[in-house]
Amino acid sequence: MAMQMTGDNTQGEPMMDMNVVPLIDVLLVLLIMFIITIPVQSHAVKLDLPVNDPNQVQPPPIDPVKNKVVVSAAGQVLWNGSPVNLQQLRSYLDVTQQMNPIPELHMQPDATARYELVDQVLAVTKQARVQKMGFVGNEYYTNVF
């Protein structure tokens, strides 16, 4: 509240200064109400994520550094741990040969696997013109012979 204590207002004349305290109070209340009503800003990015479909078969991933082909004793050909047939193996090998740099292919036939299947896998790798290939797990053959 504004009070004027000078000698000019001793005759009981009304004050000419405006009282701004109620105006400031109202403005502060309006400011607080405005701050409360502002929605909280979130920095979330909305994405539509894929839903897992149990009927959809995902192909085994192709590693850009190295891939492993295993011929098991049960007659299965495994590409990075997933069973594939020779046609799928050929398509995966074709994809790897188009990559830059070309990933390595590690061939690991089981010691008791049929040679005929191993030979078919080697023929597929030759037809796909695999450039970087190596045999791993040769230490398992020392106990076979």
Results as ranks from 00 to 15, higher is better:
residue 10 T to W: 10
residue 58 Q to R: 12
residue 18 M to V: 15
residue 22 P to Y: 03
residue 54 P to G: 06
residue 31 L to C: 11
residue 51 V to Q: 14
residue 45 V to P: 00
residue 66 K to S: 15
residue 63 D to G: 04
residue 58 Q to F: 10
residue 35 I to T: 07
residue 34 F to H: 04
residue 29 V to W: 02
residue 13 E to P: 00
residue 48 D to F: 03
residue 44 A to D: 12
residue 43 H to T: 10
residue 35 I to H: 01
residue 53 D to F: 03
residue 40 V to H: 10
residue 18 M to G: 00
residue 55 N to I: 00
residue 19 N to A: 07
residue 54 P to C: 07
residue 67 N to G: 05
residue 45 V to I: 14
residue 25 D to E: 14
residue 34 F to L: 14
residue 59 P to D: 12
residue 30 L to P: 00
residue 41 Q to T: 09
residue 52 N to C: 01
residue 49 L to N: 08
residue 59 P to L: 11
residue 57 V to C: 00
residue 43 H to F: 13
residue 51 V to E: 15
residue 53 D to S: 09
residue 56 Q to K: 15
residue 72 S to Y: 01
residue 33 M to K: 01
residue 47 L to M: 13
residue 41 Q to Y: 11
residue 71 V to S: 02
residue 13 E to N: 15
residue 50 P to F: 02
residue 57 V to R: 12
residue 26 V to S: 13
residue 19 N to K: 06
residue 44 A to W: 10
residue 44 A to K: 13
residue 28 L to N: 12
residue 52 N to Q: 11
residue 54 P to I: 06
residue 14 P to I: 05
residue 11 Q to T: 11
residue 43 H to G: 14
residue 10 T to Q: 12
residue 32 I to E: 04
residue 10 T to N: 08
residue 47 L to D: 06
residue 70 V to D: 03
residue 50 P to V: 03
residue 38 I to F: 07
residue 50 P to A: 07
residue 51 V to W: 02
residue 30 L to R: 08
residue 11 Q to N: 11
residue 67 N to Q: 05
residue 18 M to I: 15
residue 31 L to K: 01
residue 54 P to N: 08
residue 13 E to T: 12
residue 10 T to A: 14
residue 14 P to H: 06
residue 40 V to T: 13
residue 57 V to A: 12
residue 53 D to W: 03
residue 71 V to L: 03
residue 70 V to N: 01
residue 64 P to W: 04
residue 46 K to L: 15
residue 37 T to F: 08
residue 56 Q to G: 00
residue 40 V to G: 08
residue 61 P to G: 07
residue 30 L to S: 09
residue 42 S to L: 07
residue 21 V to C: 02
residue 49 L to E: 11
residue 52 N to M: 09
residue 32 I to G: 09
residue 36 I to K: 04
residue 9 N to F: 15
residue 34 F to A: 15
residue 53 D to V: 03
residue 61 P to V: 09
residue 40 V to W: 08
residue 19 N to G: 00
residue 56 Q to C: 00
residue 13 E to W: 07
residue 48 D to L: 12
residue 36 I to H: 00
residue 67 N to F: 05
residue 28 L to W: 01
